[in-house]
Write a protein that binds this DNA or RNA. Structure first.
Length: 674
RNA sequence: GGCGGCGUAGCUCAGGUGGCUAGAGCGACGGUCUCAUAAUCCGUAGGUCGUAGGUUCGAGUCCUACCGCCGCCA
């Protein structure tokens, strides 16, 4: 009986369409799941969608539909994307499914029976967007997290005795240092718990879209208690058939985004403790995917969809990039440039080319049969070096993947690719192929066998990350069923001699600059449709995050929403505006626009293009060298086909011309105004 | 405001418990081979390891302050 291995993604909140951030989390889990299967674990991989809550109720209303239909549509989009990406989840849970509702009811009842849920009254401020009660605010105050105005509510609630678990939680973190990873998240959680836990409201009576509290259907169960339970209800907790639950729970890994650490590392274990259910072994939090240094958000209009990359470069390219380029756990930056560069360097020129050259030569010189390596005279030190490198790659890869250090694990595997390329050049098999003497033939056989065997090993190691291409290379090597290959037995020398190669063809065609342009165009088109992309009718203002993994914290809320009732903004609001000193380097008129100038300004750390409607007030040549103030973090915007990355600050006189802000003293470029 | 983290070559990152001339990959530049996806391979480029002090025979690695960025909490 093989060991069970249960892994979960967060369930994604259906208030937003899936994007590359969701894909990132899911890909990481899929990679782990595939690897664990190859290692012989009885792996169970769960993902799904979170569909309840006031936010969904309101979004559906705004879209003129009912919440269930609304959720159906978005959930189907997630499911469709995962199918398209070949995600190997074993189940897909939706919180609106009967099995889930039943399980949640059961969990609620159980915690209540144990005495950890009681009825109380809450009066205070409530943030609809975050679906959270916020302490210490006055009526009309904005939510400290999202900036939207909170609502005053008074309601009778069920409360969970979270306060009773403070010591037990601290003991958990202490006795299982790996419970929360990475360590920086662990520190945050510990300090949060140490600062004292208040009881948690776990029901709502102000809206309907949720699971009714058992025996008191006026209330619905709080979204987080609802959502978190999915990890066990999907296994059959609270149902008649608990086979899977008994087999797979507790989970080995629960992957989350860093924005939902508190819910998974504090509330979730506390709920489980209260119900006397075993705790998951580890909660692993990854960082955020930034787009060229900025958070992806709807308001910035810089959300990238996974589909674009799938269309242009393919599934493996996306998977490889995300896991190789980003240090797992830290925030990482996504850009089309970096994606294509990585793709070409590592996949096309690296693994793809190695497969191509090795297999082509075996075809040419040995009629497509893996040759026998010579045992005696034709052996050289270099051959053994490759074998050693391969063993090293296997070892390091294992250690690093076990710790979810994907980027370093791939780096270790690719070191072997580099070594083999070098080995091939040093041994010049093409020159050996010219000769017919026995010595040369033997040598050629050894060189090509060695190369092919190393290729086989890299292919096996990389399979969990790039399943499609590695399956092809595997088949080209004349092997079959890479997914069934037992990774734990992988070692040098397993390649069957004389095995017949499959048809050899490139697996990673080289990408050119057009690929970048194409992806950008596709995204631009999508974004052009942001306003109308109300497909499932998700109004912009609901784009905030709660139980979703990636939706992240809604920064840069609509200005109108951050202004309190008296028209004043907080210092935090102002701090969102990044005002910087920049120097004009280039200034020219924009064809066909009377007022517009195209400027290139130097911020000291970067140069960027800004379009400014100041042509009537300033001749372009008079601006060159002048220091100006710009809003540096304004979302890019296209005007007259040119992209403007920022805004020049100027006094706007009544009916008159703009006057640029400037300084009397000397100021360095890039200096921030605050 | 409290707590915590980070700041190393153009880019992404390595550099447990201080110790040879600070590393890798990518990119850039020059050269090479020709089996291969104009791929490979070789060489070069030269970073005050955020700043200023301190501890030490010796600090990127420890301490203090400061600057910048970020996270959690209030």
């Amino acid at each position: 009986m093989s060991k069970p291995f249960y892994i979960t993604t967060p369930i994604y909140y259906v208030n937003a369409r899936p994007h590359i951030g969701h894909a990132y989390t899911t890909i990481a889990c899929d990679t782990i799941a595939r690897r664990q299967r190859m290692l012989g674990f009885d792996t169970y991989f769960l993902t799904g969608t979170d569909e309840h809550g006031q936010k969904i109720e309101r979004a559906a209303q705004a879209a003129g539909t009912d919440p269930q239909k609304f959720a159906d549509e978005v959930s189907a989009q997630f499911r469709g994307l995962w199918q398209r990406m070949g995600i190997t989840n074993d189940d897909y849970i939706r919180t609106t499914e009967e099995r889930h509702k039943k399980g949640v009811g059961e969990l609620f009842r159980r915690i209540r029976d144990k005495g950890y849920i009681y009825k109380g009254t809450y009066t205070g401020q409530y943030c609809v967007s975050e679906e959270l009660y916020v302490d210490g605010l006055k009526p009309g105050d904005p939510c400290p997290t999202c900036g939207r105005i909170t609502e005053t509510v008074q309601e009778e609630n069920y409360f969970f005795k979270l306060s009773a678990f403070q010591d037990k939680l601290l003991e958990l973190y202490n006795s299982q240092p790996d419970f929360i990873r990475p360590e920086t998240r662990r520190n945050e959680v510990i300090s949060f718990v140490k600062s004292g836990l208040r009881d948690l409201s776990v029901s709502r009576s102000t809206f309907q879209w949720g699971i009714p509290v058992p025996d008191d259907p006026k209330h619905v169960i709080y979204v987080w208690l609802d959502a978190l339970s999915n990890y066990i209800t999907a296994l059959g907790y609270g149902s008649d058939d608990t086979t899977k639950y008994k087999k797979y729970w507790p989970a080995e890994v629960q992957m989350i985004g860093k924005e939902i650490v508190r819910f998974h590392c504090v509330y979730w274990p506390a709920f489980l403790m209260a119900a006397e259910i075993p705790l998951p072994k580890a909660i692993v939090a990854h960082g955020w995917l930034l787009f060229e240094e900025n958070k992806m958000s709807k308001s910035r209009g810089n959300i990238v969809r996974a589909e674009t990359i799938l269309d242009v470069l393919g599934n493996d390219a996306l998977r490889y990039f995300l896991l190789r380029e980003i240090v797992f756990g830290q925030d990482g930056s996504f850009s089309f440039d970096a994606l294509v560069q990585r793709y070409n360097a590592d996949l096309a020129n690296g693994l793809g080319n190695l497969a191509s050259r090795t297999l082509t030569m075996i075809n040419r010189y040995f009629k497509g049969e893996v040759p026998f390596p010579s045992q005696r005279a034709a052996r050289k030190a270099g051959d053994d070096v490759i074998a050693e490198q391969a063993e090293k790659a296997i070892k390091e890869c294992k250690a690093l993947f076990d710790q979810y250090q994907f980027s370093r694990g791939l780096e270790a595997a690719w070191a072997l690719v580099g070594a083999v390329d070098k080995y091939i050049v040093e041994n010049e098999p093409w020159a050996l192929g010219e000769k017919q003497d026995e010595e040369s033939r033997a040598r050629l056989a050894t060189v090509l066998y060695t190369s092919a065997e190393a290729l086989r090993i890299v292919t096996a190691l990389a399979h969990p990350v790039i399943p499609e291409a590695t399956a092809k290379i595997w088949a080209q090597l004349g092997l079959d069923g890479i997914a069934k290959f037992d990774l734990s037995t992988l070692k040098w020398g397993q390649l069957q001699l004389g095995s017949k190669l499959g048809k050899v063809e490139p697996v990673f065609p080289r990408a050119d600059k057009k690929a970048i342009e194409r992806m950008q165009e596709m995204e631009d088109q999508q974004r052009g449709g942001v306003v109308t992309d109300a497909q499932p009718g998700v109004p912009e203002k609901t784009a905030a995050a709660t139980p979703s993994a990636e939706a992240a914290k809604p920064e840069a809320a609509k200005p109108a929403a951050t202004v309190s009732s008296d028209g004043k903004i907080t210092i935090d609001d102002f701090a969102k505006v990044d005002l910087r000193v920049a120097q004009v380097k280039v200034a020219e008129r924009v064809k066909g626009a009377d007022k517009l100038l195209r400027l290139e300004v130097d911020l000291g750390y970067e140069t960027r293009q800004i379009l400014a409607g100041i042509a009537e007030a300033y001749a372009p040549e008079t601006l060159i060298g002048r220091k100006v103030v710009i809003v540096a973090n304004l979302a890019p915007r296209k005007m007259r086909g040119l992209e403007s990355n920022g805004m020049i600050v100027a006094a706007s006189l009544e009916g008159g011309k703009p006057v640029l802000a400037s300084f009397l003293e000397e100021v360095p470029l890039g200096a921030r105004l605050k």
